[in-house]
Design a protein around this nucleic acid. Structure first.
Lengths: 233, 233
DNA sequence: CAGTGGTCTAGACCACAAG
DNA sequence: TTGTGGTCTAGACCACTGG
């Protein structure tokens, strides 16, 4: 029998996965180091490295310098979510997109928003309330606060024409953000705006984004009943 | 002025990000090719490649052979979710974990489950209903179907001692899966098991996993009120 | 201290797709 | 056809960390 050649990082990855799945390498086991594997597989060490690095990124392997590479014991699976602009999400399903601004005013925010956005007490923020519609039906209710000191340009934008969602994505870069997914119970306001029954369970996303300097915006999106967020492993 | 050197893929990535954020490279713009960039940055082409490849993976760049690399116009942000074993999730918060099996029996599944799991009509699946508790309070209600033909070992497992969640993760490898997040309204059953009011909005996760051969398991997790799933960008 | 993964380099060939 | 990204190689040095 001649040793099989693994000359691409994907084939190396497949072979490593096979050994994990067949329990040839069991959870917690130390696997051979990169040099040995590259010799066994008949490829360069960099090729093995890429294969193993990606598996570690997916949570299937744990790697530490000097300690070596082990098969993860409790594989914390990692799934990737796509977070599109709402217009694209709706148009991507073949539905027509429409957007309606319900209110826009400068206000001193409630304390929870002030805390999330880390602004001084008394500072005013731009508060936008709007609804996005798919084929004329309410799709998601958006309640957004924008730090107008961090983004002075907002004062010149007409948010009745373009949603803040799109304008920010296209014009204001950000460094990081924080996203929370949860369920809530529809109150009178949500029921009216989303045209659903009061008391219905609704999917909600809270998102805060910031740049190096300061917090830019905090938004709460409440979706109409039936919304699903989907991903694959 | 002497040109700055960028000798690590991270510093190259930072510089590229800076140019995108400063709008030196605007959304839709074609950026220089890898060879030119590696000359400009004074590093190897492989270094530039890694920096750009990761940015494309994060959705900030779009790359196509021959067509080159462009700044994404509608950056579809990608966020990574960790999906831990429930015990670890609870213990990670410093709470004590307990688990209670409510029922376990072989049944012919309802048609929606049969469709999701792609089994023949009339086939029996193992149906497990259980609840996971944190500090003695209901945390998540688990309704699971297991394909006992694909996983014959399940018949020997005592699921009153170990949850199917843990047993499967530790013993049955899988190739792929499908996850859906949604909100639902608590019915009488959920209200009783999760000790909440009927009509409350609850966070739900539906997951199906499979290996090369067949579907392994389909599970619905319904979390007690207040559950949040969190991630960062 | 020494073994392991992390990374960089210079060069090469290949695969894909735009024109 | 040809320019671009995708990948592989062989070798090198570095950074971290276990013993």
């Amino acid at each position: 029998m001649t040793a099989q050649e693994f000359n691409s990082w994907q084939s190396v990855q497949d072979e490593v996965l096979r050994r994990i799945n067949s329990r040839e390498w069991k959870p917690g086991d130390l696997i051979p180091n990169e040099v040995d594997l590259s010799r066994e597989f008949g490829c360069a060490r960099a090729t093995v490295n890429r294969a193993l690095r990606e598996l570690a990124g997916a949570g299937l392997l744990e790697r530490r310098r000097k300690a070596g590479t082990r098969v993860a014991t409790h594989p914390v699976r990692r799934a990737t979510l796509n977070i599109p602009v709402i217009r694209n999400e709706i148009e991507g399903k073949g539905q027509t997109y429409r957007y309606s601004l319900l209110s826009a005013e400068s206000l001193t925010p409630p304390s929870d928003v002030r805390a999330r956005m880390q602004v001084a007490p008394g500072d005013e923020l731009l508060h936008l309330v709007s609804v996005h519609l798919a084929d004329g039906k309410p799709y998601v209710f958006e309640d957004r606060w924008i730090n107008s000191q961090a983004v002075p340009e907002v004062t010149d934008v007409d948010f009745s024409r373009q949603s803040a969602n799109e304008w920010l994505v296209e014009n204001i870069p950000f460094e990081g953000g924080d996203i929370t997914f949860s369920a809530m119970t529809a109150g009178a306001r949500e029921a009216e705006i989303l045209a659903c029954r009061e008391g219905e369970g609704l999917f909600a996303i809270n998102r805060t984004t910031w740049n190096k300097v300061s917090t830019i915006t905090a938004v709460r999106l409440v979706f109409a009943p039936g919304y699903r967020m989907h991903t694959e492993i």
